[in-house]
């Protein structure tokens, strides 16, 4: 019985995710790229909702990975594979795995592997609205046709930008990260010694 429920739930979820893609595919005349973007965007939004609404924290983490993965897919379909690879390496390979690792190490499966997130709904709503406004201002304030001509996603151009134009900022970020690492080690050590 349970297996059937899972199957039905999977079918419904699959239908929800693929429907926009199919609609786009039919409306925009058979371009798989558009359908891919629509499907990935739907998947990302669905996974994002799952992250904040599910009660099991490990599943939230896994849904976050799905969210990051579909974002990487969006980057690829928008012609920025370099950003997508960085997204996968940093956010999935390092950060999400670290989060999952920490949760599994500290939480007990039998006990409360559940946290209540919804205690800060009002500040979260304000933050979400502010971010939405900022993003829309940025999106509508840019003339995309002009920008897309200057996009150079090859690694050479990224390297030139990083190590010539923005080298000072890069070094500053490096020092910041180093300080964070040292601070983390200091905190961990002090707790052990005390």
């Amino acid at each position: 019985m349970r297996a059937w429920l899972y199957l039905i739930a999977a079918a419904v979820a699959g239908a929800i995710v693929t429907t926009p893609a199919l609609i786009v595919l039919i409306l925009l005349g058979g371009s798989f790229d558009d359908a891919l973007v629509a499907g990935l965007a739907t998947l990302m939004i669905a996974a994002g909702i799952a992250v904040v609404s599910m009660r099991d924290i490990i599943r939230c983490g896994l849904a976050m990975i799905v969210c990051f993965l579909s974002l990487a897919g969006l980057y690829v379909s928008l012609g920025a594979p370099m950003v997508a690879a960085a997204q996968v390496i940093v956010y999935i390979g390092a950060i999400s795995v670290l989060i999952l690792f920490a949760i599994m190490l500290t939480q007990e499966k039998v006990g409360s592997a559940r946290l209540t997130f919804q205690t800060q709904a009002a500040p979260a709503a304000i933050a979400a609205i502010v971010i939405a406004v900022l993003v829309s201002v940025a999106a509508f304030g840019t003339s995309w046709g002009e920008v897309s001509e200057h996009i150079r996603s090859a690694t050479v151009y990224v390297a030139h930008a990083l190590f010539q134009n923005y080298v000072l900022v890069l070094e500053a970020v490096g020092v910041l990260l180093l300080a964070a690492v040292i601070g983390g080690v200091f905190l961990a050590k002090r707790e052990k010694g005390a």
Binding site: M82, G93, V97
Partner: peptide, 25 residues
């Protein structure tokens, strides 16, 4: 043939660990 082929390889290969963590947990 991607011009970031090596990066792609490490990115996707590193995702194995997510599956192992999922199975273990």
């Amino acid at each position: 043939d991607m011009n970031i082929g090596l990066l792609y390889f490490f990115a996707v290969g590193g995702m194995t660990v997510v599956g192992l963590l999922m199975g273990g947990w």
